[in-house]
């Protein structure tokens, strides 16, 4: 059951927040089934306590961190972000957590660490869809370049709407990278690894032409289907369709990370 979180408001504040009931009933979490209504039904049996995160790779000292210790590392902030799915819909969600960079700094990664890799729990006993999902035995994995991971917008997320994450949202801990498509924001993380080369990532492995490593929200690159517009899921029946913004509207803050890169090649 959800626990209240004491999250303080921040400058990241948007209007027209998507109803919480929609955010917790419409999830892509393929380990719990391919349909977006599957995770809510199938994820309830996942045990989110005790929960630890293993830290390894190019780091001064490998360690295992308990979730409850991690949650006390920094004050929890509430950030209302746009959440854009590559399927063409988006939500406005108040997430609760703190910048991932604050945590990564405490881990003392080696200078040779250029990328961070995240792994989702992989447990066929708790995840009925995992064997048919295409996710390999190492678990769903995603990766960010070090500067992306250290960017203050990148959120280590423990909750939403002022309470702990529902299992289908990726409890007890997930990442939110608001300028990238949703699948770049891995859920139910059990392992963080620092590496020197661009790591393999699950959707890129499954279908590289459709899912690039960067997968920054970009209305002018559409390898799978048109990304020019999005349906903002709200409370009404009629769709609210808006033009998709480059970097999901966070260009002022993050575009500099990609200066000089051809975003059509590095999509």
């Amino acid at each position: 059951a959800a626990t209240k979180l004491n999250a303080s408001p921040t400058k990241y504040n948007l209007g027209d927040i998507t109803p919480q009931s929609k955010v917790t009933s419409y999830n892509n979490f393929i380990e719990f089934g391919p349909d977006k209504s599957d995770p809510e039904r199938n994820a309830q049996s996942m045990h989110v306590r005790p929960w630890t995160i293993q830290v390894d790779g190019l780091v001064k000292q490998k360690k295992t961190i308990d979730i409850d210790t991690l949650m006390k590392l920094r004050p929890i902030e509430q950030r209302v972000y746009r959440f854009r799915c590559v399927e063409g819909w988006s939500m406005v969600v108040p997430w609760d957590g703190f910048s991932l960079g604050e945590f990564l700094k405490t881990l003392d990664p080696l200078p040779s660490a250029k990328f961070v890799q995240f792994f989702t729990l992989h447990d066929p006993k708790q995840m009925p869809g995992v064997n048919s999902s295409g996710v390999g035995p190492q678990g769903y994995s995603e990766g960010l370049r070090m500067d992306e991971a250290m960017h203050p917008l990148t959120l280590m997320t423990f909750g939403s709407y002022g309470e702990t994450l529902a299992n289908q949202q990726g409890a007890p801990i997930r990442i939110i990278v608001p300028w990238k498509y949703g699948f770049k924001s891995p859920k139910s993380i059990v392992r963080i690894r620092f590496v020197d080369k661009q790591p393999e990532t699950t959707w890129n492995d499954l279908n590289a032409p459709a899912y690039g490593f960067y997968s920054n929200v970009n209305p002018s690159v559409a390898p799978w289907r048109s990304q020019e517009r999005e349906r903002v899921l709200g409370s009404g029946f009629l769709p609210k369709i808006v033009g998709t913004q480059p970097f999901n509207g966070y260009g002022n803050e993050v575009a500099h990370l990609y200066a000089g890169m051809d975003l059509r090649v590095n999509y």
């Binding site: 009931s21 929609k22 009933s25 419409y26 977006k36 209504s37 819909w89 349906r231 899921l233 409370s235 009404g236 029946f237 769709p239």
Partner: peptide, 14 residues
Amino acid sequence: FHSGALAAESDPVQ
């Protein structure tokens, strides 16, 4: 549609 269940669907268009 009449009862509002359609609007309450997460993504009515989908």
